[in-house]
Nucleic acid binder design. Sequence first.
DNA 1: GCAACATACAAACGTTCGTTTAATAACTTG
DNA 2: CAAGTTATTAAACGAACGTTTGTATGTTGC
Lengths: 216, 216
Amino acid sequence: MADMDTGLGDPGESAPATKQAVYETAIRLFARNGFAATGMRELSREAGVNLATVNYFYGSKKGLLKAILEDYFTGLEAVLRANLEGDDAPAEKLERLVAALARYFESVSDKLIIALTELPHDDPDITEFKAARFRQLSGLFQNVLGGPASPIPASFLVPAIVSMTASRFLLLPVLRKALPEGAPGLDFAGYPKRIARLFVHGFSGLAEGAGDGADG
Amino acid sequence: MADMDTGLGDPGESAPATKQAVYETAIRLFARNGFAATGMRELSREAGVNLATVNYFYGSKKGLLKAILEDYFTGLEAVLRANLEGDDAPAEKLERLVAALARYFESVSDKLIIALTELPHDDPDITEFKAARFRQLSGLFQNVLGGPASPIPASFLVPAIVSMTASRFLLLPVLRKALPEGAPGLDFAGYPKRIARLFVHGFSGLAEGAGDGADG
DNA sequence: GCAACATACAAACGTTCGTTTAATAACTTG
DNA sequence: CAAGTTATTAAACGAACGTTTGTATGTTGC
């Protein structure tokens, strides 16, 4: 049975080279072609392993997807935990968090694309898994940013932070084809700080004017 | 050959009821299960039409996807055109545009989900189609918001506006499962105005502090 | 009535899908 | 070295895939 049921995502260094090759190739292909459109034969051929190797290590194609998603969520949780604690002022904490999120998303952009593009889909094996992870992660926000007295509900704030920081990477493959080489905005250099400031300014401005009928 | 090659998206009222049924069912299933994971037999069964009907009207499964995407982009273009002209101050125009975008996305949320989840994928038949549409739409922004003198490059601004406004709807299916019924933030009522204000505050704050080393 | 055309249908096409099996090779451990 | 575990392989399974074909049915204009 090997270690297919450890529940872990990224195979450790002790894992066989074939398992690592399957994992990395899957991330690349799932992000580029989509999970459902990627076949086991294409995957095993690109990874340079036998067809049966994939199911040997991951149980099934869906098990491989779950391992990738689990890995992504685990990394996301680490970033959130690291940047939600501390004694900073809320605005500074928010800015630091968003910038850290942007950097994390960039470092795992293929995994992020997989997670985002599979997000709205209704696969019964994956649905509850995603919802549980989301519940857990959004719970981390509860007692830190804003608090119950905040005029902005956390159920607006959390998706806004995550999705607006992440979604750039969803458009990036199209941007690369649509924009001329070297266009400003394509490079990642200034993005974390820019998106963090955009959000912290927007959030503070939003909180100030929250009472004047924003629900119309 | 019927009208499968008209290039239009949404079939008109003159189109047969079967064609309309195929189109609407496809939007629902593609958004819920993903394009590649939705089979022609499942689609035709759910639509209550014969299997061959789909290819009769749309040429192929991909032709059906293209019709949906074309329809989505055409509607998006109309919203952008309607809200990018006028003599308003930039800030007011920006706020109005973002709110209108949010309302449009909500009105076609299934089509939006399809467009977003297919965005990063590399299907050779679809890739250039998406890039061309994006080039056209981002061109609409060029001479309106900010202008060449703006410290924020349009290639940062445009994806930011579109993706941060749209991506909420990508998370919404998960939010509905993860959050308790009737949680604040799940309802759409306040969203357009809120996201518009968040962005316009964020943008102005970003422009003010643009010179102090935001590229670190 | 009869072309001409648009729509609808059942059946079959060849291909690819994810998964399983059984056998063997390679490595680890007592 | 023997025993047992881990890893790899070729081959095959039934099921589902997107598409095509040939034919029926209905409609329109002559």
